[in-house]
Design a binder for these strands. Structure first.
Lengths: 221, 221
DNA sequence: AAGTCTATTTTGAATACTCGAAATGCAAGC
DNA sequence: GCTTGCATTTCGAGTATTCAAAATAGACTT
């Protein structure tokens, strides 16, 4: 079995591979895991020896198929646990990340599949991030549109938040732009970079371009 | 924070103190934790230095108030998690022990209190073992009576199973003598040591004295 | 081409936990 | 009182993970 440290390295690598393409630089893992560079080098070598990743010296790492499969399993646990904490235990969706971080290493597959069933096989967690299925397949996200690029004056709904930092989560909470919320972009002010929109409740909101780029929207069901 | 290893040593010590009185011999921890004697000596010394237990050389250990409080917290987590796995996730009550063993170290107090609330503040886990409350107080168990010593021909119910081994749990499952089940002891055959009883469903069962001594019964509500 | 900057690697050391095997203390029996 | 036996302790060593600090490789300037 992989230790929780190893699982964390796998997950961080997978997440980076998903966001950017090509090799994952050591610095990205240093950043994501909050350790010093030397530690990452040591761990990466050990994991490469175990066949979980490939290490190109002075370049970075890449997951092997085995490593990727394990990483997807960890991601699945993380996101199902988050969903569970919010939906069933009524915890605040902006505070469940750290809890899930700890639990993802302790939940067995047996328990996980019970949770999955209990929740009705959800495909996205409370932040809208897709949940890999048991085989590690993730629903397509290539065609995603954010509030920065979506159609104007069309009734849409928030489907995903791309920035998980507590700050941004609090901001989203504040404006009410959580996954599931109906929104319509009224207009974009090119000069100032302000995006004006209104929510279902009639509330009108102005948000900056960077913020708009982090909120994914889709058609209403 | 205590590591999960430390939590396991604390819990094992508490459990032994509850079953037997006086000092807990090192051998008891060796047995309970599945490590070699030298390891226990090393850990115990470290924990004594941290003020979690007192170590009498060549004798054994005793929890300090601080250690006991922590141990009760771990026990509370273990038992609430077990209850949750059985009641909410519909897992088999004879197989949840190992799962809870892993989860008890990963569940935060915040999550734990949500689970407690979700379950309606239960006072006993699926095996009938009492769940300490938030202050570490355990409901009285001194007046417990087993099927070995209870009244004859009185309608009672199973309230607790004292042996958690998979074997005995399977036996209990088999005979249907789970916590909550109504039973009446018909008679005890002194010579053979057989205890005859009948369950609510009219089923008549014969069980040995050792088995009878592991099944706690109480008045029906 | 030489020099500089930065990411990465190396090295040496620490912590927490574990083992196996040898040494020791103590209680019980003869 | 001496010996035996078992529980416990000590000792030396190994794994996994981490850090701080020094060394190095490449890429980027000038």
């Amino acid at each position: 079995m992989a230790t929780s440290t190893v699982e964390n390295y796998l997950k961080a690598t997978l997440l980076h591979e998903q966001e950017n393409d090509g090799i994952v630089p050591m610095g990205a893992l240093v950043e994501a895991l909050g350790v010093v560079p030397g530690t990452v080098t040591t761990m990466v070598k050990a994991m490469a020896a175990q066949g979980l990743m490939e290490h190109e010296s002075r370049q970075g790492v890449r997951l092997t198929p085995v490593g990727r499969a394990l990483a997807l399993g960890v991601l699945r646990k993380h996101r199902l646990v988050e969903t569970f904490l919010v939906r069933t235990l009524k915890m605040d969706w902006s505070e469940v990340h750290d809890e899930a971080e700890a639990l993802e290493h302790a939940v067995s597959n047996r328990v996980l599949e019970r949770i999955d069933e209990f929740l009705g096989h959800p495909t996205a967690d409370p932040h809208g991030d897709p949940i890999p299925n048991q085989e590690g397949v993730i629903a397509d996200t290539a065609t995603q549109v954010t509030m920065q690029g979506c159609a104007i004056n069309k009734s849409l709904q928030v489907t995903r938040i791309l920035d998980q930092s507590p700050d941004f989560l609090a901001y989203v909470q504040d404006t009410g732009l959580k996954p599931g919320t109906r929104v319509k972009v009224l207009r974009r002010e090119e000069a100032s970079g302000v995006v004006r929109c209104e929510t279902k409740i009639g509330h009108e909101i102005a948000l900056g371009l960077t913020a708009a780029a982090k909120i994914v929207v889709g058609a209403v069901a």
